[in-house]
């Protein structure tokens, strides 16, 4: 069973290359900041309005940022045909997808972690009391985005209109995640915050189902 050791080695590579260049994280953070700032000056919401529209805006921004981030996920491997080298080296190709998935989830969570306090300040929303529940919602939502996004990134990297193809395929598939994550976050931003367990359950099931599908069919996504 070399799946997890291989995935860990590859995750280390993903983190090393990203933290060395910081290209992806910097671009994504700047992009989300611009989106949040533009929404803020366009609508100038009150505190109550922020509680209503803020979660949707936040998750839309995360989704757009993820589509930006995921574009590079497999394109990087095409530059020197390193994907072939990885396929030749690992005994289970799912290790490649697992490492990419873990790295994408981690990068997305880091971006969210950085932006949450800025959002709270900009939109005058208190998040301190519910930060642990937010962390759970962000984790499950981000994992779902990364699972679907990583699979579609592997597909679109081999296509001609790859820059357009990824968001076109990804956004409709992730609509359930967007809706449910928004509802869960909205409940947590309420003046009397509460946990929408149905939503949390849906996110967990979505993640398990799509992760299983990726495990079963992922090998075919990497084939030429």
């Amino acid at each position: 069973m070399s799946l997890f050791p291989n995935a860990l080695v590859l995750l280390g590579k993903e983190l090393r290359t990203e933290f060395r260049s910081r290209e992806l994280l910097t671009t994504t953070v700047v992009f989300i900041l611009i989106v949040m700032f533009m929404f803020s000056i366009t609508f100038q919401p009150t505190s109550d309005e922020s509680r209503q529209i803020g979660p949707g805006l936040l998750w839309l921004a995360f989704l757009f940022a993820a589509s930006l981030m995921l574009q590079h996920c497999f394109l990087r491997e095409q530059h020197n045909d390193t994907l072939s080298a990885l396929r030749l080296s690992v005994s289970d190709p799912f290790a490649i997808l697992l490492a990419k998935l873990a790295a994408n989830t981690l990068f997305l969570l880091l971006t969210e972690l950085f932006l949450l306090p800025i959002f709270a300040l900009m939109y005058n929303v208190s998040v301190v009391r519910v930060v642990h529940w937010l962390a759970l919602a962000f984790f499950l939502g981000s994992l779902g985005i990364s699972i679907v996004g990583t699979a579609l990134s592997a597909i679109s990297a081999q296509a001609r209109m790859r820059e357009l193809l990824l968001p076109v395929l990804m956004l409709p598939l992730l609509t359930p995640i967007l809706i449910v994550s928004t509802e869960v976050t909205k409940a947590l931003f309420d003046r009397a915050p509460y946990v929408r367990w149905q939503g949390i359950g849906f996110l967990a099931v979505f993640d398990v189902v799509f992760l299983t599908a990726l495990w079963l069919f992922g090998e075919y996504l990497l084939e030429e």
Binding site: R16, T17, H79, N80, D81, A85
Partner: peptide, 16 residues
């Protein structure tokens, strides 16, 4: 049997 493969693309990472 796992062949060694060298192509005209270098198959290594420029960033490492």
């Amino acid at each position: 049997v796992r062949p060694g493969f060298v192509a005209h693309a270098t198959m290594v990472y420029d960033e490492l």
